[in-house]
Design a binder for these strands. Structure first.
Lengths: 214, 214
DNA sequence: ATGACTATTGTCATTAACTGACAGACTAAG
DNA sequence: CTTAGTCTGTCAGTTAATGACAATAGTCAT
């Protein structure tokens, strides 16, 4: 009835406080990781910076790794969602490209600071244990993407290998595109372009001998 | 000069003892992991079974994960070696298939018990933290494989995307083949067949719409 | 506003993976 | 046998992660 309830948000003071400590932990952690490195920063140092107990940290994040992964998780689900939303007339590979572009735009629109994603990815790439966790996190959504491909094309994912193959290939191309993107300046458009370049290289890489002039 | 030195092996009693404790640790660990699970087995329990100190364990293996990975590491290097040894007339994808087959045969010939590899892979696949470590371990050899592809075909890996693409795709297909193989009985031939089936599915999966009858 | 109910947090204790330092035991070689 | 070098065990310490319980703070009805 009244104006001061920001309609739609299911929040009281309690929810707001939780959100604030969660955000504060993530921000403090990332700043410390960037300064001193991931392994060199203890959970204690993070919680001291935010002035909460160490125990509280592990109520928000399953592990130290999990905090870093929480920056990244949304990305792969967004891709699966956008893939399902792509027009059915597009063939699978085209749909995958479109979904990649759309999910990127959606991500950069939602996030407050688009630069932060780059620094997170660089941290992951330069920290072996985080890279391992990242690869696993991406792999965890494979089944989801396989399902979407199979439904789009009306095949049975249990017997037909093609959805599994395509999902795995897309995952690999995404990873390659991310590497190029990190090495370069790191604007969102560059990431989409890198993905396209890799998917363009897909058929040439698989067909016959390669000629010196690509 | 004398007969009793098993020519070529650079061993005295010291080397033999090291090899024995290392083997004992690996064997005891795998048996315990299979019985109680990976996380439920502490390093202490492993070292007690072999009757060495906990500290000694970490002189042989960088971590608990590292022990499991040591079963698997040779596999990916073997693939890279066999790839370089494949006849240059074969195009890259064909050479990759050949290298996969050859490296498998080499592995099963070297190992005393071919069944052990299956149980290791099943342990890895059913333990999230091991799966993460495995994915990273595989990824660590990507550059090596990219180099081999680039040299075989005479292209520059820094500018040409195709060797990177093919290496990533082969890695993904290997992973898929392993999954099928684990789910089935698990003979070596089945693994090679699964890999071939997935590489056969590559072009169909990437080209146009899929027809319901594969 | 007050009090009861519940979610959140802090404190304490504990386990387990690792690491550095040093001392003692063993091996290889003269 | 002795010396030099390598392994191993013991000890002490750090850090991630988890369970149990008490203290605190937010929510809601009266």
């Amino acid at each position: 009835m009244s104006l001061d309830a920001p309609a739609g948000a299911d929040v009281g003071r309690r929810e707001r406080k939780k959100q604030r400590t969660r955000d504060a932990l993530m921000e403090a952690a990332m700043e410390l990781f960037q300064q001193r490195g991931y392994h060199e920063t203890s959970v204690r140092e993070i919680t001291d910076a935010v002035d909460v107990s160490e125990r509280t940290f592990f109520r928000y994040f399953a592990s130290k790794e999990d905090l870093v992964m929480s920056f990244v998780r949304d990305g792969t689900v967004a891709f699966a969602d956008m893939l399902a939303a792509q027009p059915p007339r597009e063939d699978p590979l085209t749909a995958a490209r479109g979904a990649f572009h759309t999910s990127l735009r959606q991500m950069s629109a939602r996030s407050s600071d688009p630069r932060s994603y780059l620094s997170v990815m660089r941290l992951i790439d330069s920290t072996p244990s985080l890279l391992a966790a990242y690869l696993r996190a991406v792999h965890e959504h494979d089944d989801e993407i396989i399902e979407v491909f199979a439904r789009r094309e009306g095949v049975d994912p249990a017997t037909d290998r093609r959805p599994r193959v395509l999902a795995a290939v897309i995952g690999a191309m995404t990873f390659l595109a991310n590497e190029d993107w990190q090495a370069s300046d790191g604007d969102t458009d560059g990431r989409a372009a890198a993905f396209d370049a890799y998917t363009d290289a897909l058929l040439p890489a698989l067909s016959g001998h390669w000629t010196a002039d690509q």
